[in-house]
Simulated assay, not measured.
Amino acid sequence: MSRYTKGVSKKKGLKPGSLIHVGNSTGKKTEIHIIDYKDDYFEEKDVHSIDECLKYRDTDNMTWININGLEDIDLYEKVGKYFGVHSLIMEDILNTNQRPKIEEFEKYIFIVLKMIYFREDKLVVEQVSIICMENLIITFQEEGKDGDVFGNLRDRIRNTKSKIRKTGVGYLTYALIDSIVDNYFVILEKVEDKIENFEESLMTTATNNLFNEVYNLKRQMIFLWKAVWPLREIINTLQRGEVEIIGSDISIYFKDVYDHTVQVIDTIELFRDMIAGLLDTYLSSASNKMNEIMKFLTIFSTIFIPLSFLVGVYGMNFDYMPELKFRYGYAVLWVIMISLSAFMLMYFRKKKWL
């Protein structure tokens, strides 16, 4: 769970608003991608400097600036200066341990979300920060657009017949959040497949590796729950139509996203219960297996206790012991031991201990 605390100590003793990256270092160069559009106009390009974005501050077009990478502190200082974003908000953008939230200001709103996807069978939680202004949205990602969930959204914007080309900042904000929420269902489908595979495996064999995999899945569900649960509060704020920049005409779309969010949360809680059940099943299976082993060893030991007693008695080195000179003593002793063992086996079977 270090993903939620790692690097926070870097900020110790610094004044509020100090810009410092808190999170995993990718080593990648910061990328800036711009989509500028309206009903009959479209422009898409990559730029190398935040200075090239200044001309999009006061246009009639709808502009989406996507910045990938959080390690270029100088760039983020310029973003705050050029677009009038408070230094505390810029600090939150660079801190990837933020809880999903929404904050409303006079000229913009600030939203933090968690984008989740699988990479090599490992759950990856990436923070996405969104600043919504009039006719302008700036998104900030940890890694890059090649691995995000906005590919379909970009294709919709490129389509001249798409509804999004005729709408403003409110609808684009909805579309961004909806893309992230819809991807949660993709994650849940993969989690469900894993749970079904684990259930089948537990019916046949319960190994330590299987237990480790189930436990890792449980940790991943905790990550997912922490990322999704606060989202309900964010969507609820937006669907009430009280955020001036978003507008009330988009509230019906946020109601739909809210329903999806509640469904995701319910499914996560269901899966958490199922995974807890899998762990209980594994522990019960391991306990039953150990009981069977102990049962076998106990029966085996019980059979040999009287046999050990007999051979122990006749193994004593006294000179005057009865039956020592008996000609058929060895054969008789074998008959007694075999008969005793057979009787005990029949008794155990009758009691259904075998």
Rank of each mutant, 00 (worst) to 15 (best):
D193N: 14
D193V: 12
K194M: 12
I195R: 05
E199Y: 10
E200M: 15
S201P: 01
T204A: 03
T207H: 05
N208H: 14
L210F: 06
L210Q: 04
L210R: 08
L210M: 07
F211D: 03
N212P: 00
E213D: 15
E213G: 03
K218V: 08
R219L: 04
Q220E: 15
Q220M: 10
I222R: 02
L224Q: 06
L224N: 07
W225G: 04
K226V: 06
A227S: 14
A227H: 00
V228Y: 03
V228L: 11
V228D: 01
V228R: 06
P230W: 07
L231E: 04
L231I: 14
E233Q: 05
E233D: 14
N236F: 06
T237A: 10
E242W: 01
I246W: 08
S248E: 11
I250T: 02
S251L: 02
S251T: 12
I252V: 15
I252A: 10
K255C: 05
D256M: 05
D256P: 03
T261C: 09
V262R: 05
Q263Y: 09
V264A: 15
D266V: 10
T267S: 12
E269H: 12
E269S: 04
L270R: 14
F271G: 01
R272V: 01
D273W: 12
I275V: 15
I275T: 10
A276P: 03
D280E: 13
D280P: 09
Y282W: 13
L283S: 12
L283W: 11
S284E: 08
S284R: 06
S287A: 11
S287N: 15
N288I: 04
N288V: 11
N291W: 08
M294R: 09
F296D: 04
I299R: 00
I299Y: 00
F300T: 15
S301C: 00
S301P: 05
